[in-house]
Amino acid sequence: MAPINWHTFYFLLFALTAGVFAVAVAVTSNVVRMAFYLVLCLSATAGLFFLAGADFVGAMQIMIYVGGTLVLLIFGVMLTAQGPFISMKTRSGEWVLGLLAGGSLLAILISAAVGVRAWRPVELEEHSPQARVTASRLGMGLLGARVDQLDQSDKTLRAGMSGYLFPFEIISVHLLVVLIGAAYLARPKKRMRPGEETQA
């Protein structure tokens, strides 16, 4: 009996989980269940990233999507959704349209992906992706130290390659704005301007 290729085994496991639960998200009509299936689907995708050697992306996937966004989504849905919104009915016409749009996108994506020579399985053997460790370099780059550019001998050229500290600051401004918006949305309704029609 041939030894089991564990890499392939886990790839199939994660891919199957991701695929099945992605379909489940589309098929189910209950919002809470949808969110839960999405958790499973995204976790499996994170597993695929780990298998491909992209541990940073995998960790981010779990931290941001599974840990942050989706838990918030589930809480949000459970706290706010009532009656008509908790389960969504999809008419058959919408199914047809959705399948048409999604199917054509899938077809284009597959044809584009197959068209890339370097992604074909034969050449994948040559540069095995497992050996690369990306996380620390990316983290340093985020803080402004481009350790991946250390071989750059030109000092001034290196100065032009500052890391991602500035975008990081811009993101914090985004979060501030979002917080302000959230605070405004969460204010009690009676403090709306007098004389205006309040929320219907």
Partner: peptide, 26 residues
Amino acid sequence: LVLLFLGLELVSIPTYILLFLGRANR
């Protein structure tokens, strides 16, 4: 691309708030 996206989002996100700050009707 990162900075471009962040710039475009800095245009979008405050817009949501502005729209909501408008008149409070349906």
